[in-house]
Design a protein around this nucleic acid. Structure first.
Length: 543
RNA sequence: GCGCCCAUAGCUCAACUGGAUAGAGCAUCAGCCUACGAAGCUGGUUGUUGCAGGUCCGACUCCUGCUGGGCGCACCA
């Protein structure tokens, strides 16, 4: 795998720093400046060294630039960097040569997706657990967003060389299953003509009637109603996820975990280490020894377990299955739970930072300009299914990721289903379809022998540069653990393409130029397709 | 009372995790198809970044305090 230009320049900067007297412990940062007049790549290292070297940033930058210029040859970068300049307060800006741009485009055309891949994961095993909704009803919009984010993040990590598994933790026992069973039982009685009182905290949704009918038909015993209903609902959830394009590698049953004895084993270990103690007739986990502000009950005084008990064993088991990095994707109502779970990881002697917990903020659904209130128990909430039916998979997925994951999201159903330019997904898909259309219409064949150096227009060079940012963007997605940046990037890339399209005619009488431009748009197509694939959004050839 | 998140243009959000003149979309107005898809492109208007201090060469970003909003603080899951 070829080292990308960024890594090579960073290496060059490091090398060039060697002439300085100590004082640099920082890894040089190299960014793509937002404004092209600040070069193609830029580092702020001189400013950051200013303090420890006790010199003005510009003086350092100039000295460093001289070193860089003389080191460049040895790094084989002479042909690729057109110019290095010190600008502004002490930024060192790199201007890439056309030769480099053409070679990079050529690389994308020959190796396609592989040219975009950077192996950052090195085969590290990652478990992403997400959605994990209780099987008591259809998936909500909150789950939908978690599903979109988790699935895309998993795809991105896979692309970056991580070995990723997607897992769904199934809460198939406990109090909510009991209530589910009793809800079903009552509805069965009601259907049989009995007068019933239906408690407020029972599941109110219409679907309970369907389950009740089926349970009656199959003659399910009263004691089994809870699990029967849970299985039935799990079937619904699986179909919803399937239609949303989200596939899990494994479904981890809490019930089976309980029966496996793994919880007891985990407790034995913690007891031995002194992290469990009895008090008030209950068993407590000493999470305050770690990062929690309060110890937590794991076995209640009535002998039953709290939710934390299986969760401790579950996460222990994740590591025991060989995963080195755990990513949990949760809703905001669980953020108070982070410290106690991380504490349990630490109690087993593991690094709590190897467990990343991402809080996906809620999406507020707007219909007719008004927010729709949500209540699971009353059965009044917008489901993933409704969103899918109304706006479609592509718009839904893209929309959910079009904001930073940690930010609230306003999801206006009326706008999303309009399928107008207001929805950014069409802007990106349109660029993709437009490219296909041009390729279809062209008499000249797309070939490998195009002379790319004919691409000289400002828009053409800008477009190639934009293509080169793809792996940098994925890098940001990795460090922020958020696919959001990719949605932004695809919009920017599409914008660069549409601008190019408007100013540079692809198909013309000039056969050589036509070939070169076909090659360019093919490069754009490859990158947009790769990006949409990672997001789980389709890439239509016609719209 | 304690903890977490948020506050940026009329609205929805950015600002690449501390960088260069705080930018997009929507809305609105004016242009661009006898050439590859007008679901596109070009141009015009919009700011005391909630308030007050502090750190820094540099602050929307970090720290402290305040104001206003969301969420969480279970022997629930």
């Amino acid at each position: 795998m070829k080292k990308n230009i960024q890594e090579r320049i960073i290496q060059l900067i490091k090398e060039s720093l060697k002439g300085f007297d100590g004082g640099f412990s920082e890894e040089p940062q190299l960014d793509f400046p937002q404004d092209p007049k600040f070069g193609d790549l830029s580092t702020n290292i001189a400013m950051r060294l200013s303090k420890s070297l006790k010199k003005p940033p510009r003086d350092i930058a100039i000295k460093l630039m001289v070193n860089i210029n003389s080191e460049m040859e040895g790094h084989g970068l002479r042909d690729y960097i057109k110019e290095v300049r010190v600008e502004g307060a002490g930024f060192i800006n790199f201007y890439l040569s056309e030769k480099y741009l053409y070679e990079s485009l050529k690389d994308i055309l020959t190796r396609e997706k592989e040219a975009l891949r950077v192996d950052l994961g090195k085969g590290k095993r990652v478990l992403i657990e997400f959605v994990s909704a209780n099987p008591t009803g259809s998936l909500s919009v909150a789950h939908a967003r978690q599903a979109a984010v988790g699935d895309a993040l998993a795809s991105i990590l896979e692309f970056l060389g991580f070995k990723v598994k997607r897992e769904y933790y199934l809460n198939d026992e406990g109090n909510q299953i009991n209530i589910l069973g009793r809800s079903t039982e009552l509805r069965m009685k009601e259907l049989a003509g009995e007068k019933i009182e239906f408690p407020e905290n029972y599941y109110q949704g219409e679907y309970i009637y369907d389950i009740a009918k089926e349970a009656k038909q199959k003659g399910i015993k009263v004691d089994d109603l809870g699990h029967f209903a849970a299985d039935y609902i799990l079937g619904i959830i699986k179909r919803e996820l399937d239609d949303f394009g989200v596939k899990f590698d494994s479904w981890y049953s809490q019930k089976e975990l309980g029966e496996s004895g793994k919880i007891e084993k985990a407790f034995d270990y913690l007891k031995k280490k002194g992290f469990l103690y009895d008090s008030d007739g209950a068993l407590w986990f000493k999470s305050t020894d770690f990062s929690d502000d309060k110890d937590r009950v794991v076995v209640k005084s009535d002998g039953s377990q709290t939710y934390l008990a299986p969760d401790i064993a579950y996460h222990d088991d994740k590591y025991k299955r060989g995963f080195e990095w755990l990513i949990n994707i949760w809703g905001p109502d669980h953020h108070g739970y982070i410290n106690r779970l991380k504490s349990s990881v630490a109690a087993f002697g593991r690094d709590p930072d190897s467990l990343s917990i991402l809080i996906v903020q809620l999406a507020t659904i707007f219909r007719d300009g008004k927010p729709v209130q949500m209540s699971t128990r009353r059965g009044e909430f917008i489901t993933l299914r409704e969103v899918l039916d109304e706006v479609g998979r592509d718009a839904a997925r893209f929309f959910f990721m079009a904001r930073r994951t940690s930010s609230h999201l306003d999801f206006d159903l009326d706008i999303a289903k309009e399928q107008s330019a207001q929805n950014p997904v069409y802007y990106v898909q349109y660029a993709h379809a437009r490219i296909h259309s041009i390729l279809r219409n062209s008499i000249v064949k797309l070939g490998k022998n195009a002379d790319l150096s004919l691409l000289k227009e400002k828009e053409e060079l800008a477009l190639i540069k934009k293509l080169l940012q793809f792996s940098y963007i994925l890098n940001i997605c990795l460090s922020t653990q958020d696919p959001y940046m990719l949605t932004v990037y695809l919009q920017e890339l599409s914008e660069s393409f549409h601008k190019f399209y408007d100013l540079c005619r692809v198909l013309s009488d000039d056969e050589q130029l036509t070939k070169a431009r076909l090659a360019l748009i093919e490069g754009v197509r490859i990158v947009i397709a790769a990006g949409l694939d990672l997001l789980g959004v389709s890439k239509p050839e016609k719209m």
